[in-house]
């Protein structure tokens, strides 16, 4: 993906706002931000953002490409939609943050070992395998996402929660054997593959 990054740098030659408008989900809206800061003040994880949304929007306009795309900021979004509900200009901020996260990951610029970036990828891989989420495997892959010894520690820390879920039949060890899924996996996978192909073709020619 680093070739892709190079390609985009050359294509947009410092016009990062245009790059975002062309390539980021709902990126067209960025220019509408009037810097009031309501989004930043409304975010439940506000204090943990390296750059809160309002700042991200200004940085995009100021051409701070690396600072934005390498930031852990967008990965702090909990999808609570507070910012969307309150934005006086009606910007779909939640979606723009998701879009920036997707784009930074595609370019290979997302921070390594960012836990939500990793978890979100695990979630996608998990659900696309059979068409439905396998909660047991998702939980286990989450515990072990930072290696084996870390995984054992996390699993031990989480054991009471797991036992509580087992006892109330809200989890089953049987899911390790396969678990729930769609019947038409073939059609499901073909559909996703086609969607990916169409999107990749579109990204390739955007803004040209």
């Amino acid at each position: 993906m680093s070739n892709y990054n190079q390609e985009m740098i050359e294509k947009y030659r410092g016009n990062f706002l245009k790059e975002v408008q062309d390539n980021v989900e709902e990126g067209d809206w960025v220019k509408m931000c009037m810097q009031c800061g309501v989004c930043s003040g409304s975010c439940p994880l506000g204090p943990h953002w390296e750059h809160p949304p309002q700042e991200i929007f200004m940085m995009i306009r100021a051409g701070k490409r690396d600072e934005v795309l390498q930031s852990s900021s967008m990965w702090m979004c909990t999808s609570c939609y507070n910012c969307i509900a309150r934005c006086p200009r009606g910007l779909p901020i939640t979606h723009i943050m998701h879009g920036l996260a997707t784009y930074s990951k595609r370019l290979g610029l997302a921070p390594k070992n960012q836990p939500t970036a990793k978890f979100a990828q695990l979630f996608w891989d998990n659900l696309t395998r059979t068409g439905r989420v396998n909660e047991l495997k998702l939980g286990l892959s989450l515990y072990f996402m930072n290696g084996f010894s870390e995984g054992i520690k996390t699993a031990l820390k989480m054991k009471d929660i797991g036992l509580g879920m087992l006892k109330t039949k809200r989890m089953t060890p049987m899911e390790i054997l396969g678990g729930h899924g769609c019947k038409d996996k073939k059609g499901f996978h073909a559909m996703l593959k086609k969607a990916q192909e169409i999107e990749e073709a579109r990204i390739g020619k955007s803004g040209s």
Binding site: H98, K105, A110, Q121, V133
Partner: peptide, 23 residues
């Protein structure tokens, strides 16, 4: 019949906009 996961609000690291909408 045969519904699939919607990818909730956390599918965006792996899935682009169109694959997510397709779900």
């Amino acid at each position: 019949p045969d519904w699939n996961c919607c990818s909730a609000s956390i599918g965006y690291a792996g899935g682009g906009e169109l694959p997510r909408l397709a779900l």
